[in-house]
Design a protein around this nucleic acid. Structure first.
Lengths: 204, 204
DNA sequence: GACAAATAACTGACTGGTCAGTATCTTTTT
DNA sequence: AAAAAGATACTGACCAGTCAGTTATTTGTC
């Protein structure tokens, strides 16, 4: 690892600060509602500085989402890789789902992001790529780790299960973040348990 | 039904037109992005006219959502009531879910609505009430119709099932509307089938 | 004629993006 | 080692465009 110059360090810090502040403001006010001035100020910089590091508001938004997504993908990949068998990795995955669901900021960001992408077809490709990060990376590793090579023949069914799991989690994210008093932690676990059992019946 | 004067008819028409136009624009551009001017023009009226019928932008948005929700609630309630037995009403409900999931405009509206409510605690109560319309009304009727009085003793489990069903559908709405090429109609039906079977196992 | 709906011009606050100038760090020259 | 030259992150004032909401006026119905 090569040492960074003072300037490079400063750049890194500025970008990190801007992204952190951006997350707070974007989550609170949404893309349209967020003001670059406020983000910059919260980051201890000026608005012009945002434009030194990012092309425009959208670019900042995208960078933020990519960073967050990448971080999550790395986390889950790391956890799954440490697991000894399929049962264990399935359990790890389930636990991970709960954490994901409980991450309110990320949930809102994702929603906001999807809505934005939907409404800006001209930049849809860039956004799609950001989502691909999570989909492709996790899916492949999960397949091998959770279902193993053994289940290749029943892959069609696993496909269905995975296809159902995504929406399921998205839905729980919605519900738990928007009506937190309705969906207690205990209930969330029970629901997830039931869903997992239904979608991934134990092999026999 | 009492006959309406010409003026009253005109008012009704104006409101209906405004709401229709509002739906189109709100769905396409989101709450912040939507412009009252465009809504009014699309409705064949002027912006000022919006303010004769609605308090402000938020009020228009809310009215729109309430109308749509109420309409859906009435539809499902009507369909379920026509069913002869529990099995039939469960099937009707499943079919209804598919229609709901495929209603892109309503899906986006709901999301936008939830995000708005989340960010405007001062009017959270009004919004909550709008959601209550669907929750309470459907839940109660569904209980009796789908599970009947017989299952009161196992109600705890049904509670869980219903609690899981909401998010599930919300998730499918998300997935199917934002990545339509991924979730085909056939797959959607299969997923729903699996979920329903898992959540509402046939009584024996 | 009274009253309310509809119009259209207007206002005022707001904000994304720009840019000329400054401060700070790095590289080159002597 | 010091100074000069170069590079670039950063600033902050500014502008042009936008848009929710208001108001004065007109139109149409009962």
């Amino acid at each position: 690892m090569k040492t960074l110059t003072k300037q490079q360090l400063r750049i890194q810090e500025t970008q990190a600060r801007l992204l952190e502040a951006a997350e707070e403001v974007f989550v609170r006010d949404g893309f349209e509602g967020a003001q670059l001035d406020e983000i910059a100020t919260a980051a201890g910089r000026s608005k012009g500085s945002v434009y030194t590091h990012f092309k425009n508001k959208e670019d900042l938004f995208l960078a933020l989402f990519e960073r967050r997504t990448r971080s999550y993908v790395e986390q889950i990949a790391h956890k799954i890789q440490k697991c000894a068998d399929q049962k264990q990795s399935l359990a790890a995955f389930r636990q991970f789902c709960i954490e994901l669901i409980r991450d309110k900021a990320f949930s809102i960001l994702t929603l906001e992001f999807k809505l934005y992408a939907l409404r800006h077809p001209e930049s849809k490709d860039r956004f799609r790529r950001a989502f691909e990060i999570s989909r492709t990376t996790t899916d492949d590793r999960l397949y091998v780790q959770m279902f193993g090579e053994l289940t290749r023949d029943t892959r069609a069914d696993d496909d269905l299960a995975l296809a159902a799991l995504g929406p399921m989690i998205a839905g729980l994210i919605l519900e738990s973040n928007f009506e937190p008093d309705i969906l207690s932690d205990k209930k969330l676990r029970r629901i997830l348990g039931r869903i997992f059992d239904a979608l991934f019946p134990p092999l026999d």
